[in-house]
């Protein structure tokens, strides 16, 4: 029972041809198409109404995740690399302590900051704006300091990052690199692993 592709292609061409033979439909089709293209290229950029911005949700997720990590110290310093205005605003709204009672403080950094600037960070969030080479350097230093690294780029886990945010339609989910946590001698609750969009172990991200 073969599918008659040639016959269909012929019918399709005939269909398109017939459509454009019909004068008023031709005019309407072109008119609509023109409007679409004109509007697409000329209308000033507008933003949708959003109940929750991406940066606010990610900041809230980070705040929640801290509660599920077994920290060796009571005081936690969150370092944020290359934050845009939205991230600065979101992180500044973070409560002063975690749900477990750890004291929280913030430090905003950028790629030109000295590597030693991240030495006292227990948590490092690296925004998507940072370049790949700088990201690799930050992750490398973070590994030595046993810091928890959080990112939002596709290759973040593969590069050795520990928690990565991924967009699933309008929702933000997270992936966990369980091996990286193990190497840093940090324990993350199995409750988080269950909620994670994906959990990477050993070299499962390869």
């Amino acid at each position: 029972m073969p599918i008659k592709n040639k016959q269909f292609a012929y019918n399709l061409l005939k269909g398109i041809s017939a459509q454009f033979k019909s004068a008023y439909l031709h005019v309407a089709f072109v008119f609509i198409s023109l409007i679409i293209i004109l509007l697409s290229s000329n209308v000033a950029a507008q933003t949708h109404n959003k109940d929750y911005s991406e940066s606010k949700i990610k900041t809230a997720l980070i705040y929640n995740l801290l509660h599920f990590i077994n920290w060796p110290s009571e005081e936690l310093l969150i370092c944020i690399y290359d934050p845009g205005e939205e991230y600065v605003s979101s992180f500044n709204a973070i409560p002063s302590s975690t749900k477990s009672g750890n004291t929280l403080s913030l430090k905003f950094l950028n790629v030109s900051s000295a590597p030693s600037a991240q030495n006292d960070c227990q948590v490092i969030f690296i925004s998507a704006d940072i370049d790949s080479e700088s990201l690799q350097n930050i992750l490398s230093n973070a590994k030595n300091n046993h810091s928890v690294t959080i990112g939002e780029t596709k290759q973040f886990i593969k590069q050795g990052g520990m928690i990565n945010f991924v967009r699933r339609d309008v929702n933000i989910k997270f992936e966990i690199n369980a091996s990286a946590f193990e190497q840093a001698n940090l324990k993350i609750s199995s409750q988080v692993l269950r909620i994670a969009d994906r959990v990477y172990t050993d070299n499962s991200y390869e």
Binding site: D51, Y52, A60, Y63, N64, A93, I94, K173
Partner: peptide, 22 residues
Amino acid sequence: ANSAENDLFQLSLEQLVDINVN
């Protein structure tokens, strides 16, 4: 006006990852 000033920090992880049913 729609306040949208919810305190996201009060939500759980599960609530945050499924905050929008789209």
